[in-house]
Simulated assay, not measured.
Amino acid sequence: MNPKQIIIVGTIAIVITLSGGIWTDKANAKPKNTEAPTQRINIEVQDALLHLLGVSSNEEMQEALYNGKSLADITKDNNGDIRRVIALQLTEMTEQLDQRLTQGSITLDQYRAQRSELAEIVTRSVYGLPSG
């Protein structure tokens, strides 16, 4: 893979992580009032991300990413605030790290190491930059 493809795949991985609740919700086909709290939060995060990017659907975002745009490009094209996109993703990824620590799937040292790198990783991903 060339570096641009790696960046695109990394960005898509973050987007997929954030949109996981949507797929779960559709697959279960539950009525709205029986959604698990985590699914509701993931859907809210996905909706917030789409709003911040200035796109109307997950498909529109995926198409732009597939065509080589970064999340920052999409946001800029739609006069959005890139800082808010980064903040949203950073918050979501931090919550996931917190959850992994609480569940015992990572150690405190692993948590601290990953948490210390998170802001840079998310920022580089949003801008479509190769990892440092």
Rank of each mutant, 00 (worst) to 15 (best):
Q46E: 02
S70R: 11
V9R: 06
P31L: 03
L97A: 14
Q5R: 08
T102D: 09
L108G: 05
D25H: 13
R115T: 14
N79Y: 11
N58H: 07
L118Q: 12
G68Y: 12
T11I: 05
P31G: 04
N79T: 11
I82Q: 12
N79L: 12
D77S: 08
N33M: 04
Y66S: 13
A36T: 02
D109H: 05
A119P: 12
A13Q: 02
S131E: 07
L108W: 06
P31I: 03
D73M: 12
G21D: 05
M1T: 08
Q5C: 07
D47E: 05
E59T: 09
D25L: 13
L49E: 02
R40Q: 01
L53I: 04
V126K: 06
L101F: 09
I14P: 00
Q46D: 04
I22H: 11
N67T: 13
G21C: 03
T75F: 09
A36E: 03
A113L: 14
T123S: 12
S131W: 05
K69L: 06
L52R: 04
A29Q: 14
V45W: 01
T24N: 13
K76H: 15
T94K: 11
A87L: 08
D73A: 12
L129W: 13
K76Y: 15
Y111L: 07
A48I: 03
K26W: 15
P37E: 04
I6D: 06
T34C: 00
T107Q: 07
I16W: 01
Q96Y: 08
G54S: 05
W23F: 15
Q103T: 11
Q46W: 03
A119R: 13
Y66P: 10
K69P: 07
I106E: 05
A27P: 11
Y127R: 12
A87E: 10
R40A: 00
K76C: 14
R124G: 11
E117Q: 14
L97P: 15
L101C: 09
D47I: 02
Q46T: 04
Q39F: 02
Q89A: 07
Q5L: 11
L65G: 04
S70V: 09
S105R: 01
L65Q: 03
S105W: 05
S116T: 15
L50S: 03
M61I: 02
V126E: 07
I43T: 01
S56D: 06
D25G: 14
G10V: 06
W23Y: 15
R100V: 07
N79M: 10
A27E: 15
D47T: 01
Y66R: 14
N58Y: 07
S57L: 01
L88I: 06
Q39H: 00
V122L: 05
K4A: 10
R112A: 15
